[in-house]
Structure formats: C-alpha cells, structure tokens
Amino acid sequence: MKNNDVVINIVRFIALVFLQVLMLNNINLAGYINPYLYIFFILMYPLDGNKGLLIFLSFLLGLSIDIFEDSGGVHAAACAFIAYIRPVVLKYSFGVSYEYNSIKIKKADPMERLTYISSLVFMHHFVMFSLEIFSVKHIPLLLKSTLFSGIFTIVLVVCTLILFNRKST
C-alpha cells in the first residue's frame, strides 16, 4: 500500500460511517429498505493490501455502525465475514489474474465488476439480516430484506464508482 492509499482509506472509512448513520439509515424506503453503502470501504480496499488488516478494519467499521444503530454486533459480524471471504470472491469474479495486480477494480470489465460487487453485497446483507432478525419464523422477511436492500446498495455502489471514476480521469 502506498502512502496515498492509507490517507484515502482513512478518509473513506470516516466519511462512510457518517454518511451511513446520518443519512442512509434514515431513508427507510417502503418502510424497511435501507442501503448499506458503508461496505464500499471493504469493496474498494486495495487488492494488494494486508488481508489480516482488512479483516480487522472491517470489524471496526461494522462495530462503529453497530454502536450508532444499537444493533449489537450484526454489522461487525457481516463485515468481518465478507472481508475474510473477499479473496475467494475476487478469484472467481476476476479470474486468477488479480493476484498479479494486473486488475484494478475501477477499470475491470463491467460484468466482472458487477459480479464481484453483488456477491459481496448479498453475502453481507444475508449475514447481517439473519443475525438481526435471528428467528426461523421470519425467513420470508429475511429474504425480502436481503433482496431489496441488496439491490439498493448495489445501485448506490455502482453510482459511487462512476461518480468517483470520472473525477480521477
């Protein structure tokens, strides 16, 4: 990781937490649909960065959201999970080449990028909602929340990517 990356990631971490708790958690589309854009941090974490550090930072990221949301540790658990599983998802969405640093998430093929983003988003939402709801009785609610919130999050992540890509070129 270059020095520049460290600064960018620290700023991104703090900005995303505040954006999430002050704005995005209050959208409540149709009563229960909220986007969880803060995992953008985990998605965009440098590919050559330390994996252990990513797991720890993701846990911290989730925990900060949890403290604001009074939700125990559901975001922390979901974030730690996707941070751990990220190398596997990278491998199947971009092929083995990502290991040789020849791929940049911002410049990858759109389809591959979408696979990568949506797999991680759905995994995150599924773990988070199952821990939050925590009962077998509400499985339809779990699937519904995961699907709709997931779609919302993916749309926002893609928009954010496009927005920031344009700036950098």
Binding site: S71, G72, G73, V74, A77, A80, Y84
Partner: peptide, 27 residues
C-alpha cells in the same frame, strides 16, 4: 483472526437480545 472477531460480534448480538443487558454497545 476472522473466527475470533466473528465470535465476538455474534456474542455482542446475542447479548443485545436479552433485554437490559445491552450495556457494552449502546448509542
């Protein structure tokens, strides 16, 4: 590392499911 952190967060979650015991993580 993942296993430890995941266990901690699940423990925190289960703890908040008991009324009155959500003392660690609270807004």
């Amino acid at each position: 590392l993942f296993a430890v952190l995941f266990t901690i967060s699940v423990a925190l979650t289960i703890q908040t499911h008991n009324y009155h015991n959500n003392k660690f993580i609270s807004s």
